[in-house]
Computed example of a mutant assay.
Amino acid sequence: MSDLKSATEKMSSLGASVNSNVDELLNEARPVLSRMTHRVKDELHDLSESGKDAMSDVKHKLEKEARHVRVTTEHFIQHEPMTSVLIAAGTGAAAALAVSWLMRSRQR
């Protein structure tokens, strides 16, 4: 019976020792984990900012390109009105033909 009590005491002592070691390791690891968390947070913030900057650059480039296309188109229409009308008519006819073809293919 005393062997059983002795084994129980040893197990209890071992469990307390393991628990103490785990608590000690966790206390030592907390500052490291905290620093790692802050680094990751800072990196994510930097990545987010660079993404916003890249998106802003692309937006400005697209706006500039759209403005250029608009000016070029207006210039072409002003200097070549008859050609512009023919291109518009051809585009409209092609669109109407495509819609007509799609409508017929869906009815079948």
Rank of each mutant, 00 (worst) to 15 (best):
S84R: 03
H38S: 12
A66M: 09
E80S: 10
W101F: 12
V32L: 06
K59R: 14
K5C: 06
P31M: 03
L47R: 06
R30W: 00
V85T: 11
V85L: 11
G92R: 07
D42R: 08
A94W: 08
T83A: 10
N21Y: 13
M82Q: 14
A29I: 06
L26S: 06
S13P: 02
A94T: 10
H79G: 05
A88L: 05
S48L: 06
D3I: 03
W101G: 01
F76E: 06
D42N: 10
S13A: 15
A7P: 03
K61R: 13
R39Q: 13
M11W: 15
R39M: 13
S20F: 07
A95P: 00
L86V: 03
E43I: 11
L26P: 02
V58D: 10
S48K: 07
T37V: 05
S2L: 13
K41C: 04
L102D: 07
S56M: 04
S50E: 13
E80I: 03
L97N: 02
K41P: 00
D53W: 05
V99N: 01
E43A: 12
L33T: 00
L26T: 08
E63H: 08
N21T: 14
K61H: 12
L44M: 12
M1K: 09
A7G: 07
R35D: 13
M82C: 06
P31V: 02
A89N: 08
A54N: 05
P81E: 04
A95T: 09
S6L: 14
N21S: 15
R39K: 13
S6D: 15
M82E: 15
D23I: 03
M55K: 10
K59Y: 11
M11T: 15
L62V: 06
S20I: 05
D46P: 00
M36F: 06
A54W: 04
H79D: 07
M36A: 10
V99I: 03
R30T: 07
S2M: 11
A7C: 08
S100L: 11
M1H: 12
A29P: 00
V71A: 13
L4Q: 11
E28I: 10
E28N: 14
T73P: 00
M1S: 14
E28P: 00
V71H: 13
K52V: 05
V58R: 12
S12H: 15
K41D: 08
H60F: 12
T37A: 13
D3P: 04
S13W: 08
S20N: 12
E9G: 07
A66Q: 09
R67K: 14
A93Y: 12
E63N: 09
E43R: 10
A94C: 08
P31N: 04
A89G: 01
D46T: 02
M103A: 14
M1L: 12
G15F: 07
E74P: 02
H75Q: 10
H68Y: 15
R104A: 03
S84C: 02
R35N: 11
A88I: 02
K41F: 04
L97F: 07
L102F: 14
A93W: 09
V40C: 01
D42L: 08
